[in-house]
Design a binder for these strands. Structure first.
Lengths: 163, 163
DNA sequence: TCATTTGGTTTTAATTTGCAACCAATATAT
DNA sequence: ATATATTGGTTGCAAATTAAAACCAAATGA
């Protein structure tokens, strides 16, 4: 992994776990039901030493659980925890953006469909409590309880610059 | 950037652009209204040679537009294009996950609020056309028009493994 | 005219990636 | 019981990338 981000920011925090070229592919494999080291390795093309390291990180972060499927052995299944499952909307958002903007409509490699209707999943978007789609202008970013001084200042600058 | 992903997959396609430690922070800065090289550099902590390279990639991908703010000079503003703006839901999803799972409730560095009500933005989640929240089980992944043979096979395996 | 700012480039050391060979322990086949 | 295959790595090393610091040309401001 590259330099670790230390400033208090949710995006930076995510990058401390996912800010490399492979980890989202490992997560994709987990959502596709892959559990074994060589299964994940084969389906992603990742180098074995890198995969070993990334799995360690994901287990340490509580995103995957390592389960011994032998008996005191060297056979493990890596399964999503509840924390790992909570990545689903993020993965869907990445997936939808990739379909639309990397491949383009009509060229999507993998479609996301509603099981009940067979129709394409609607794009994930911020919505209000009464169900209305929200735009960027409808959303504020504000310092939260965990904000550092630097974060408070950055958000104030952002507010001034976008107003 | 590390090894380029060549298999046809929306997540892999996204990682070919964003699969490093800094690019999402550059995008965050763009959404916060930062436009100048040193502004982005200061607010992220990124090395200048790396930032120069990442900005090149984002401009080449049509996500940021480089605008000469002098006259035939060396002063540029980097602004989000429509394609860049379309990253907003992805950034929000990352942001919400980071708030919830990296920092935890009560410790969020940056709150996302609905401007109209001042209340926290609802978590982004897949929803049906009639507004119902969808679970993982409600969503199918199917080969799309741009699917490779390998992708078709992988999705069939995933189907079998998750059924 | 001089100083400062901007957006880099270059150099170099440190770190990470990726490949291939190798390994220990377990499971399977004979 | 023994040999073979599988699993999940580790190791060594070369290549690639990152990161820091110094440096640079051109534009802008004093």
């Amino acid at each position: 992994m590259a330099k670790r981000h230390t400033h208090t920011c949710p995006i930076a925090g995510v990058l401390n776990i996912f800010g490399d070229n492979w980890t989202w592919l490992v997560i994709r494999e987990a959502f596709y039901g892959a559990t074994r080291f060589s299964e994940i390795q084969r389906n992603t093309g990742i180098a074995k030493n890198v995969l070993s390291d990334r799995l360690d990180v994901l287990v340490n972060e509580g995103i995957l659980a390592r389960e011994d499927v032998g008996e005191n052995g060297t056979r493990y299944a890596y399964r999503l925890t509840a924390k790992g499952e909570s990545l689903h909307p993020v993965l869907l958002a990445l997936h939808q953006w990739g379909n639309e903007h990397v491949y383009g409509p009509g060229n999507e490699p993998v479609l996301l469909l509603e099981r009940a209707t067979g129709k394409p999943l609607q794009p994930l978007a911020p919505t209000s409590r009464n169900g209305r789609r929200l735009t960027r202008a409808d959303i504020l970013t504000r310092p939260g309880p965990g904000a550092s001084k630097a974060t408070v200042r950055r958000l104030a600058e952002a507010d001034a610059s976008l107003a």
